[in-house]
């Protein structure tokens, strides 16, 4: 039997239900795919990673997205490192250490390799541990700015005010990476995801999560 009167509230409810049916939200995606993904050592993008845990993570909190700078951003220091590894071979052409005795020459070369090792390891650590994590509750930015300084910034999803994607330059366009600026209403005004891969996809996921959080909030407030 056709309805004679439908209240505007019911119409809105029906519309939002249809909208939700159309789209799979990030927190539903895992349920559909069935399992989490194990991310490799060199990964800079992981959707529902199984092997990511961070300090202060709550027991029921799920990591949805794991991000770090694109692998190609390491090219500069890798090239410098490779040059440093092979630099002692140039001593055959340019005998700069010939004024030293053989024992001193060996120690100088060993010292050079120590510096090379420290340089490359430091650069790797800096890339490996500077990460951004998006969970079903918040956005987390882990930064290690120097040897012993650590900074962890987080903002709840409902505190996110604006998401800006910036992508420019030949390298970034070819390898599809860029920077996302997440403006928050928290103590720190923004969280930056620097040189992350697939910035548009990440912004989309963040937007979906925000919508989901808003809907959850509205549902909660109605109750």
């Amino acid at each position: 039997m056709p309805d004679i009167f439908i209240s505007p509230e019911d119409v809105e409810k029906e519309k939002s239900e249809k909208k939700n049916e159309r789209k799979t939200t990030p927190s539903q995606a895992k349920g559909k795919s069935g399992h989490k993904v194990h991310i490799p050592l060199w990964a800079s993008y992981g959707y529902y990673p199984e092997n990511v845990k961070f300090i202060d993570q709550e027991p029921q909190e799920n990591v949805i997205l794991f991000l770090r700078a694109h692998l190609i951003t390491n090219l500069g220091w890798i090239l410098v490192g490779v040059f440093m590894i092979f630099a002692p071979l140039l001593l055959e052409k340019f005998p700069l250490l010939d004024f030293l005795s053989l024992r001193f020459q060996i120690v100088a070369i060993l010292g050079w390799y120590m510096i090379t090792m420290a340089y490359m390891f430091e650069k790797f650590l800096s890339w490996f541990f500077n990460v951004n994590i998006i969970t079903d509750r918040r956005v987390v930015d882990v930064d290690f700015t120097n040897l012993i300084y650590r900074e962890i910034t987080d903002a709840n999803l409902n505190k996110i005010q604006d998401v800006t994607v910036s992508m420019g330059g030949v390298f970034r366009s070819i390898f599809n990476f860029g920077t996302i600026l997440v403006q928050t209403a928290g103590e720190k005004n923004f969280i930056e995801f620097v040189d992350i891969p697939k910035p548009d996809t990440v912004a989309g996921i963040l937007s979906d999560l925000r919508l989901e959080e808003e809907n959850r909030g509205k549902g909660g407030s109605k109750l």
């Binding site: 194990h38 991310i39 050592l41 092997n51 990511v52 845990k53 961070f54 300090i55 010292g111 120590m114 420290a118 390891f121 430091e122 650590l125 541990f129 990460v131 882990v142 290690f144 040897l147 012993i148 650590r150 962890i152």
Partner: peptide, 26 residues
């Protein structure tokens, strides 16, 4: 210089410990 490097390497070990305590990736 070697002694200074050893101190640096020790700091690095501590740093790695701090980093792995903060973030576990397997």
């Amino acid at each position: 210089a070697n002694l200074i490097y050893i101190v640096f390497a020790l700091v690095m070990v501590r740093q790695v410990k701090l980093m792995t305590d903060t973030l576990e990736l397997g």
